[in-house]
C-alpha cells in the first residue's frame, strides 16, 4: 500500500499551481471514490479507474499500488503553515462494475493505446482520494466577493476540474447536514 500522507513535492507542486491560478487560500480534503483495477491478462494492475456515481467520466490513476482505502486521520494531510483539519467528502452511491467497465471501453475507443488493459471482474473498492481545495475571491457583477473553488489532486498536484461538481455537491450537503445538526442540538438543549 502506498503511503497515505502527501509528500512535500506534491504539496509544493499543487500549491504552486493553485497560486498561479489566483488561489489565495487552500485546504486539504479527502473525497470518497471507488476504484477498479485495470490489468493485462494474468498481470498485476497497471492502473486504476476511479469513479463515483455522480462523476461523469472516471479518473485514471496509473501505478500498481492504490492509496490507502481506510478513512485517514486528520493529521495525515496538511498544508504548511495551516491547520491540519482535513475535510472528508463522502459520496453515497458507488458506481457498478458494469458502469466503470463501459466507461473504460469509451476511454479506449477515444484513445486506443491501452487495449490490453481490462477492468477487474470485481466490485469497485472504496477509496479516500486526497485533494486540495483552493479558494479565490474576485469582484464580479454578482457582488464584491464572488468565491471560486479549484480542485487539485493530492497525489500529483494536477488540477481536476472534473471533480469540481462532485466536490461542490458534497460541500453543500455537508454544510446542510451541519446546519441541521446544530439546529437539532439547539432545539433539544
Amino acid at each position: 500500500m502506498a503511503e497515505r500522507r502527501l509528500n512535500a513535492s506534491v504539496e509544493q507542486r499543487a500549491t504552486k499551481r493553485l497560486e498561479r491560478l489566483g488561489i489565495r487560500r487552500i485546504e486539504p480534503a479527502w473525497i470518497k471514490l471507488w476504484a477498479l483495477a485495470l490489468a493485462a491478462p494474468e498481470q498485476s494492475p497497471a492502473a486504476w479507474l476511479l469513479g463515483a456515481a455522480e462523476l461523469r467520466r472516471p479518473l485514471l490513476l496509473p501505478g500498481t499500488a492504490l492509496p490507502a482505502a481506510s478513512k485517514p486521520s486528520a493529521d495525515e494531510l496538511w498544508i504548511e503553515g495551516g491547520s491540519a483539519d482535513a475535510l472528508y467528502l463522502d459520496t453515497a452511491t458507488p458506481p457498478s462494475q458494469a458502469e466503470l467497465a463501459r466507461h473504460w471501453l469509451w476511454e479506449r475507443l477515444a484513445k486506443p493505446r491501452l487495449w490490453r488493459l481490462d477492468v477487474a471482474k470485481a466490485a469497485p473498492t472504496p477509496l479516500w482520494f486526497p485533494c486540495f481545495l483552493g479558494y479565490a475571491t474576485s469582484k464580479t457583477r454578482r457582488g464584491p466577493h464572488h468565491y471560486r473553488i479549484v480542485v487539485a489532486s493530492g497525489l500529483s498536484g494536477e488540477l481536476l476540474p472534473q471533480l469540481k461538481p462532485l466536490v461542490l455537491k458534497r460541500l453543500l450537503a455537508l454544510s446542510r447536514a451541519q446546519h441541521h445538526q446544530s439546529v437539532a442540538i439547539a432545539e433539544h438543549g
Binding site: E19, G22, R25, L87, L133, Y147, K169
Partner: peptide
Amino acid sequence: DETAPDMQAVLAARADSAPEIGREAR
C-alpha cells in the same frame, strides 16, 4: 454551480477558515 447564493455562502465560510498561501497571480 458555485455561483448560486447558498453555494457562495458555503465557499465563503470554508475560504475564511482555510490557510492563506500567497499573493494573487492569474
